[in-house]
Design a protein around this nucleic acid. Structure first.
Lengths: 194, 194
DNA sequence: TGGTTCCGTTATCATTTGTCAATAGATTTT
DNA sequence: AAAATCTATTGACAAATGATAACGGAACCA
């Protein structure tokens, strides 16, 4: 169950985890199943857990005054589902996170994660690396959102994350790109003609 | 010259820097002046320096096929001017960074910064904190860009960063928000009537 | 199996935003 | 001081995107 997490951590650290460290990780991360459409986090709650996705697919979104959903992140295996600001600051979250497929996660609380980082220093490397990747991706997405047309954003997304197109319905992709599902449908129609 | 950097670091760490550590920092960060309109980084170059802005204002932007600039970040005192991906990965940057006001910065290379982080462990705390703030801000900006109208994005920006309105011309604010200067002018006109 | 919801597409029309052009005042340069 | 450049605004028109409604088919549920 924890193998994919261990493997994932090892792929980002200079020295592999020792057996004792692996034990510690296994004892700290708790396995949990989240069924399709079930919430992992609801707006207004403090995000008490960070969830490593072992299997499945989730989405993180806000809901506006008119009840419309705006998806800020789509998540699959090997990603962390968490509202980082709420998790770190203990502030109420503005996001909802729920499962789109039946999902299995490994969850950890903030205090447990702090202990774990203290006991396994090499994890700090892992976190730094993740932070960097996260920052790179955020920068690119931001740059795309202010610079590119809907069509270009979609084609970039489709080539960067082809598996997402298979696993999430189009109206969620549209929301993630900041356009309506009708616009996405038209954009795809245009693109197909070329 | 380095006082603002020292002060800034101390404000994010649990224990203040020792005198010897401060000396080390002063000897590692190099002071540099960048005149208005002078480049700190040009597209295609590797970003060899990270620059802490002591005084002044800068902007980071891409240039598209048609020669239009798209500003991804506006920077003032106490911010870091750097293309993080290029700095870390040694890859050619897709960004330009130049000074909008006459600017004074403290610059450091990647190797020097790695040495410094090894010699002053408490700096890791500082970096983690900055990474978190950076991630929070990126999340919010992204969420705004897919969810809100131009008018709402502008008013949010204006209340979050009022000093930027004073220091950067409107067409740069517009570019940062992902709209044209004409649209921003109209949006402001509308807002003023209310 | 029959009904219900979900999903994607299409059409029409409205709204927002972009493009292009002209203008006027500030600022900078020569 | 004159010329050139930069900045912000405005108008007319075009293009992109959103809103609403209708439709058929697929998936899901009872």
């Amino acid at each position: 169950m924890h193998e994919s997490l261990i493997k994932y951590i090892n792929s980002y650290t200079s020295t592999p985890l020792a057996d004792s460290e692996i034990e510690l990780i296994k004892n700290t991360f708790v396995h949990k199943k989240i069924r399709k459409r079930q919430y992992f986090l609801q707006e207004g709650q403090v995000c008490k857990f960070s969830a490593f996705i072992v299997k499945g697919a989730m989405r993180q979104y806000t809901v506006d005054d008119k009840g419309a959903e705006h998806i800020v992140r789509l998540l699959i295996e090997n990603w962390l589902a968490v509202d980082r600001e709420s998790f770190v600051m203990l502030s109420p979250s503005i996001y909802n996170i729920d499962a789109w497929e039946d999902t299995e996660v490994l969850i950890i609380t903030k205090p447990d994660s702090m202990d774990l980082f203290n006991q396994i220093p090499v994890l700090t490397e892992w976190r730094q690396h993740l932070d960097e990747l996260h920052a790179f991706a955020a920068e690119k997405r931001l740059s795309a959102s202010i610079s590119f047309s809907a069509e270009k954003r979609y084609s970039d997304f489709a080539s960067a994350y082809p598996e997402f197109l298979q696993r999430f319905p189009q109206h969620m992709i549209a929301s993630y790109l900041g356009i309506t599902k009708e616009t996405l449908s038209r954009v795809r129609h245009q693109a197909a003609k070329k």
